[in-house]
């Protein structure tokens, strides 16, 4: 059974998580410095999340379709995204196994993985805030 029951629930959780990341200077500053626009395209259920750091000043978080051309697109099942935020996904392995599709300069996105690692600890709290149990869901 899929972790997220609807697009709305998925986008809600992911958006909340990214807003928490935005509030954490350690993570946010490094992401903003990257000047990247990264779009996450989820399936089962479908979902779209865009993180725009292109102005090097602030992190903008959008859910749903938006008229911004991303520099990097990462596509995956929503369940893979969930497992990723629980710290259970080896990203190079997931790329090798075709579980993640990355369009654009992938190395730039991979370089940010250590930066967002502290969010693994935040994610279960975000899920719980939305009435979901991280362990049950995972």
């Amino acid at each position: 059974m899929a972790v997220f029951s609807s697009t709305e629930e998925l986008q809600d959780v992911m958006s909340l998580l990214w807003h928490e990341i935005k509030e954490s200077p350690d993570m946010a500053n490094k992401l903003i410095q990257s000047k990247l626009i990264v779009q996450f395209r989820y399936r089962e259920p479908e979902g779209l999340l865009t993180i725009d750091c292109s102005d090097a000043e602030t992190m903008k978080i959008y859910t749903g379709p938006i008229n911004i051309k991303p520099m990097i697109e990462m596509s995956m099942k929503a369940d893979i995204a969930h497992e990723f935020w629980l710290g259970k996904v080896n990203v190079p392995m997931a790329l090798m196994m075709g579980k993640i599709v990355s369009r654009g300069p992938t190395p730039k996105a991979l370089a940010l993985l250590p930066v967002i690692k502290p969010a693994y600890a935040i994610y279960p709290g975000v899920l719980e805030g939305k009435g979901k149990n991280a362990q049950m869901a995972g």
Binding site: S102, R103, T106
Partner: peptide
Amino acid sequence: GDLRDFEGINC
């Protein structure tokens, strides 16, 4: 199209 558009992994 532009070859740059196909840069990436598994795309």
